[in-house]
Nucleic acid binder design. Structure first.
Length: 454
DNA sequence: TCTGGGGTCCTAGGACCC
DNA sequence: TCTGGGGTCCTAGGACCC
């Protein structure tokens, strides 16, 4: 059986609630609920709370009396705590497998290929997480992600499996797939499952064996076909191991109460824009596109409903806080309508680009034209400043670093004048990074310090 | 009156996820 | 009175080109 690809989904049970229980052990076996921002609705519930009929996303004002009656313990969310606990859980997983894909704050896939007894191994993982992070988890084992999700669901629902369930072969899932409702499959939510039901597809097995590809494509897009394949044991969603950069970012919030004034809206947009800019810088990304949106309260009757968004683009990509705020406020002007009661606002950035890639593209652009654009020059300086930040400790010493640019190798020589309170970098490009010039430079570096490489 | 066709690229917005 | 936030991915359809 070795060589067969196998993966496991580790899913923390009622994650936010169990994070809170770490510090309140007396709440074990008691109903606990964690509320969303503004204490709006329930986002995490323990099985005891679910048994009382508290649904996912249930508005707090609707369940409040129920909670009071059954002494449900209510918490406002504490995301920094949950992130911290999550990191601990993921670190434990990394000690079991080098191939860990962190899927969300409370879920991860790991590769179990080649493990002799996967079920026993998973049981060990479960115990270790319970012991070291104090978080109960369920583990599903299968050849594909969609089946691992199914397995994990069974592990959670059926106590006889003690939180770990799965098979090495897709066909072993057959008896279970006819029990699982299609709406419980990963990637099939209410809307799509309703359409599937119209065609007599009620359970996961019906779905897997449905052969009208055209119809599946129409109802569930390309993803539907992939889910079908995954149910058959053909992997379409492989593990993504490296930490990939985000492709979009957003910051949004509902207001505690309705907002009428333009000023308040502007303030919220500026704050979202600045938060997004900080996120961009954190992963060294720039963005071309800024989307601003506002909306009224769709649940409130008797008011004029309004939802609008507007997109503006930068000429060159940015992650500068002030540039983002400026553009976002400009976009807000386009959709601002007076006399309405606003309830939510947000800023979303799209078309991200890696900062360094962009800078390198400017270098290339510059090198291919005799005329240096002002923009390219400015970026070159900014980048050099950054490098200077890194080598700041080499005060007064000449330092060399080399930069890989496309297929060519450009070498930049830099110098900081230690007599000046400011950076006064002098730099120039060597014609090419051939071995002769490198040798010369290495002699030079020996005298003044090691080369700095990026 | 009748107003190409086929291709690519871009974007807005929806469905879904946790 | 009070109904989350942050993501990904996909597609329809418009703009544009020859």
């Amino acid at each position: 059986m070795k060589g067969l690809s196998l993966l496991a989904l580790i899913d923390c049970n009622s994650f936010y609630c169990n994070c809170e229980r770490i510090f309140r052990p007396e709440l074990k076996d008691k109903p606990v609920v964690v509320l969303s921002n503004n204490d709006g609705c329930a986002v995490s519930r323990t099985p005891e709370a679910k048994a009382l009929g508290i649904g996912m996303g249930a508005p707090y004002f609707q369940i409040k009396s129920l909670c009071d009656k059954h002494e449900v313990h209510i918490f406002s969310s504490n995301f920094s705590l949950y992130t911290d606990i999550s990191r601990r859980v993921m670190n434990i997983l990394k000690s079991f497998s080098p191939f860990v894909e962190v899927y969300s704050v409370d879920e991860a896939f790991i590769d179990l290929s080649g493990i002799d007894n996967p079920l026993a191994y998973a049981q060990k993982i479960k115990e270790e997480i319970a012991r070291r992070a104090k978080i109960p988890v369920a583990i599903g084992i299968a050849p594909t992600k969609v089946l691992a999700k199914v397995a994990c669901r069974i592990a959670k629902k059926d106590p006889q499996h003690k939180g770990v369930f799965g098979f090495q072969e897709a066909r072993d899932f057959d008896p279970y797939l006819s029990q699982i409702k299609v709406s419980n499959l990963w990637g099939v939510a209410k809307g799509r499952s309703l359409s599937l039901k119209l065609h007599g597809i009620h359970h996961a097995k019906d779905f897997r064996d449905f052969s009208n590809h055209h119809l599946i494509q129409k109802i569930l897009t390309k993803v539907g076909r992939q889910i079908q394949d995954e149910l058959r044991g053909i992997s379409c969603f492989p593990l993504t191991l490296e930490h990939e950069k985000k492709k979009e970012m957003m910051s949004s919030r509902t207001f505690g109460r309705g907002v009428f004034e333009k000023r308040a809206l502007q303030e919220s947009i500026a704050s979202h824009a600045s938060s997004v800019a900080a996120q961009l810088r954190l992963q060294n990304s720039l963005c071309y596109e800024v989307l601003v949106y506002v909306r009224t309260n769709p649940y409130k009757e008797g008011i004029i409903q309004y939802a609008a968004s507007h997109v503006l683009r930068f000429q060159r990509p940015q992650n500068n806080t002030f540039a983002l705020i400026k553009l976002a406020l400009k976009a807000l002007e386009k959709i601002w309508t007076p006399g309405l009661e606003y309830k939510k606002s947000g800023v979303r950035v799209r078309q991200l680009q890696d900062e360094h890639e962009y800078q390198l593209s400017l270098f290339e652009q510059e090198n291919s034209h005799s005329e240096v654009s002002k923009e390219a020059k400015q970026y070159k300086e900014e980048m050099l400043m950054k490098v200077m930040d890194h080598i700041n400790h080499r005060e007064g010493k000449r330092t060399l670093f080399s930069l890989a640019c496309g297929t060519d190798h450009h070498t930049w020589k830099m110098r900081r004048d230690f007599n000046s309170p400011r950076y006064t970098t002098s730099w120039y490009e060597l014609p090419s990074c051939n071995s002769k010039s490198l040798r010369k430079e290495s002699k030079y570096s020996k005298k003044y310090g090691r080369p700095y490489k990026t």
